[in-house]
Write a protein that binds this DNA or RNA. Structure first.
Length: 199
DNA sequence: AACGGTGTCAACCGCACATGT
DNA sequence: AACATGTGCGGTTGACACCGT
């Protein structure tokens, strides 16, 4: 599929840790051309990196407004609750945590939460009690009931829009709290989350 | 001081999905 | 419909730091 190690010239690309110079080139490129079109970024930026590496570096490290501080108790609680709802959909979870990346959340989960000692926060996750995540697309003909809620969620602040009128973590948590209440109230809505092949 | 175990984080890899032709 | 290409995601790994012995 995509050759991660071969650039347009067929020459091997750099791997491993990024240098300050590479960061500067990538930052300048994104500022100039904007995010997206990642396949063009290595060429535009003059970087001997694959597009995936550039994208990841930008999203996880260079993007403005990233929150690289400690996870607060509120954030941890939200992660636990969202994980209970969504499973390992780190990008979705991170999308509700202003300034956090999917990689951050995933690493934090793997290092701290999944190893405990936080059993008091909730029951053990099993195949049966994880709420299946939404698919990446919705059916045009028959959107499921929960899609409305998720569509609503798209109006919530994301990492890209941290300065919106409702950008606070508290608001995110309040909204997700509502959703969790709905799903936990026995509406069976949890079961309508379709299973995808990507769990 | 040297060594080994463990934790953390950045980055890579492979895959599935979206989109265009 | 079939195929090619681009994109994004989750799982995994490697490097490094820290700590205890």
């Amino acid at each position: 599929m995509d050759n991660n190690n071969i650039n347009n010239n067929g020459v091997g690309v750099r791997k491993g840790a990024w240098t300050k110079e590479e960061d500067a080139l990538l930052r300048d490129c994104v500022h100039k051309y904007g995010e997206g079109k990642w396949h063009l970024v290595p060429l535009r930026a003059g970087l001997n990196r694959c597009r995936k590496s550039c994208r990841l570096r930008w999203l996880n490290y260079l993007r403005p407004n990233l929150n690289r501080g400690f996870f607060t108790n509120d954030e941890v609680d939200l992660i636990v609750r969202l994980h209970k709802l969504l499973g390992n959909r780190w990008s979705l979870i991170a999308g509700r945590l202003p300034g956090r990346t999917a990689n951050d959340v995933k690493n934090y989960w793997n290092c701290h939460i999944s190893k405990g000692p936080t059993p008091a926060r909730g029951k053990t996750l099993t195949e049966s009690n994880i709420v299946r995540p939404r698919p990446r697309t919705f059916s045009n003909s028959q959107p499921p009931a929960w899609s409305a809620m998720l569509i609503r969620s798209t109006k919530l602040p994301t990492n890209d829009d941290p300065n919106g009128p409702s950008s606070s973590l508290a608001e995110c948590m309040r909204w997700w709290g509502e959703l969790l209440e709905i799903t936990e109230r026995g509406t069976k809505s949890v079961s309508v989350f379709p299973t995808t092949s990507r769990l």
